[in-house]
Computed example of a mutant assay.
Amino acid sequence: MAKQTAGRDNLGEFSPQFAALNDDVLFGEVWDREKQLSLRDRSLITVASLLTQGVPQLEAHLTIAKQNGVTKEEIVELITHLAFYAGWPKAWSAFNLAKEIFDESE
């Protein structure tokens, strides 16, 4: 996984400690533990969590999931499954994002 700099890029001057925790701990140390859990599996878990919360970070993590080898079919199944647990409107929103990101014409 590429070195994460979103924390420093977006919040580095305003909240340097939070930015460092985001980039160095969350994406540096936690996501780097691939022997314990693959990037692909971490992506599936993260997308599922963000979908249930209905937060805007879902879009970025759908893109990361695709980069980490999650397939369109897996994302469709994940969203369909979670629709019954997280709510239909959240699933609709997630499907709209996933359609853009996993568009097979790319």
Results as ranks from 00 to 15, higher is better:
residue 2 A to H: 12
residue 4 Q to V: 13
residue 4 Q to F: 15
residue 5 T to C: 05
residue 6 A to R: 15
residue 6 A to N: 11
residue 6 A to S: 13
residue 7 G to S: 12
residue 7 G to V: 13
residue 8 R to W: 09
residue 10 N to A: 11
residue 11 L to E: 03
residue 11 L to P: 01
residue 11 L to M: 14
residue 12 G to R: 11
residue 12 G to A: 10
residue 13 E to R: 11
residue 14 F to L: 15
residue 14 F to E: 05
residue 15 S to D: 12
residue 16 P to L: 07
residue 16 P to S: 08
residue 17 Q to L: 11
residue 18 F to V: 12
residue 18 F to P: 00
residue 19 A to H: 10
residue 19 A to F: 11
residue 19 A to Q: 10
residue 22 N to L: 14
residue 22 N to S: 13
residue 23 D to T: 11
residue 23 D to S: 10
residue 23 D to E: 10
residue 25 V to L: 14
residue 25 V to I: 14
residue 25 V to A: 05
residue 27 F to N: 06
residue 27 F to V: 05
residue 28 G to E: 06
residue 30 V to A: 12
residue 31 W to D: 06
residue 32 D to L: 01
residue 34 E to C: 02
residue 34 E to V: 15
residue 35 K to I: 00
residue 36 Q to S: 12
residue 36 Q to A: 15
residue 39 L to V: 01
residue 41 D to W: 03
residue 42 R to Q: 12
residue 42 R to N: 09
residue 43 S to D: 07
residue 43 S to K: 05
residue 44 L to H: 04
residue 44 L to Y: 04
residue 44 L to K: 15
residue 46 T to E: 04
residue 46 T to V: 02
residue 49 S to G: 15
residue 50 L to M: 10
residue 50 L to F: 03
residue 51 L to T: 07
residue 51 L to F: 03
residue 52 T to H: 02
residue 54 G to W: 06
residue 55 V to W: 00
residue 56 P to S: 01
residue 57 Q to F: 00
residue 57 Q to E: 13
residue 57 Q to W: 00
residue 59 E to Y: 02
residue 59 E to I: 00
residue 60 A to H: 02
residue 61 H to C: 02
residue 62 L to T: 06
residue 63 T to K: 15
residue 64 I to A: 14
residue 64 I to E: 02
residue 64 I to G: 02
residue 65 A to M: 05
residue 65 A to N: 06
residue 66 K to D: 00
residue 66 K to N: 01
residue 67 Q to T: 10
residue 67 Q to L: 11
residue 67 Q to G: 08
residue 68 N to A: 12
residue 70 V to A: 10
residue 70 V to E: 09
residue 70 V to S: 09
residue 70 V to T: 07
residue 70 V to G: 08
residue 71 T to I: 02
residue 72 K to Y: 08
residue 72 K to N: 12
residue 73 E to P: 00
residue 73 E to G: 13
residue 73 E to N: 12
residue 74 E to H: 07
residue 74 E to C: 07
residue 74 E to Q: 15
residue 75 I to F: 03
residue 75 I to L: 03
residue 77 E to V: 04
residue 77 E to N: 13
residue 78 L to W: 09
residue 78 L to I: 12
residue 79 I to H: 06
residue 79 I to K: 04
residue 80 T to E: 05
residue 81 H to A: 10
residue 81 H to K: 08
residue 82 L to V: 03
residue 83 A to L: 10
residue 83 A to T: 14
residue 84 F to W: 15
residue 85 Y to K: 05
residue 85 Y to H: 09
residue 86 A to R: 06
residue 86 A to G: 14
residue 86 A to Q: 06
residue 87 G to V: 06
residue 87 G to P: 08
residue 89 P to G: 09
residue 92 W to A: 03
residue 93 S to K: 11
residue 94 A to G: 06
residue 94 A to W: 05
residue 95 F to C: 01
residue 95 F to R: 02
residue 95 F to Q: 03
residue 96 N to H: 04
residue 98 A to V: 05
residue 100 E to N: 12
residue 101 I to H: 02
residue 102 F to T: 03
residue 102 F to M: 01
residue 105 S to T: 14
residue 106 E to K: 15
